[in-house]
Amino acid sequence: MKKSTRNYLLFSAFLIFSFISWLVQYDFGLAIWDNFLVFARDMVLILPPAFILIGLFDVWAKNETIEKHFGKTNNPMRFIYSILLASTTVGGTFVAFPVANALYHKGAKYSSIFTYVTAASLFMIPMTIMEASILGLKFTSIRLLASIPFIVIGAIVLEKYFEKTAYTLPRVDQK
């Protein structure tokens, strides 16, 4: 069975389970459904515009531009660009993975996309503000400042490895 078919079947089973939970007022099932709604609402709101932007990026962004800022020219600024791009990515890794994939196929280096993906989960601006307001500015500043060198070093190490093994990321826009 195809993986997507399996996932759709599982999801249908989940919907039926939730519906039955609602019919018989089964608390455990209802609680799962509540959690699901919380996440699903975000996804429904964020994913459509995000994928429209990714599609537009695909047709408009020139390979040379991406290569110049994120790619083969080895511009050290690429780490800063990647982190800046990441901090403005709405939706965290759910959106960052497809964006990273698109950047890669436009000629971005591994170190750029790994910095981007990692930073996208750590540096989202609204999340950071929320964290600082609940856990304190000191805590958030230490955590974020400490993470930058680790992220960049980690991304460079992974790049060294992947360049040696001639690894390529999958293409997702073909049928």
Binding site: F11, F36, F39, L47, G55, D58, F94, P98, V172, Q174
Partner: peptide, 20 residues
Amino acid sequence: GLKKGWMKFYKTLPSYLFLL
């Protein structure tokens, strides 16, 4: 571009659902 975005979305939708 819209078509490309849709293709990507469509291909990963089951993964998103499973994940949620």
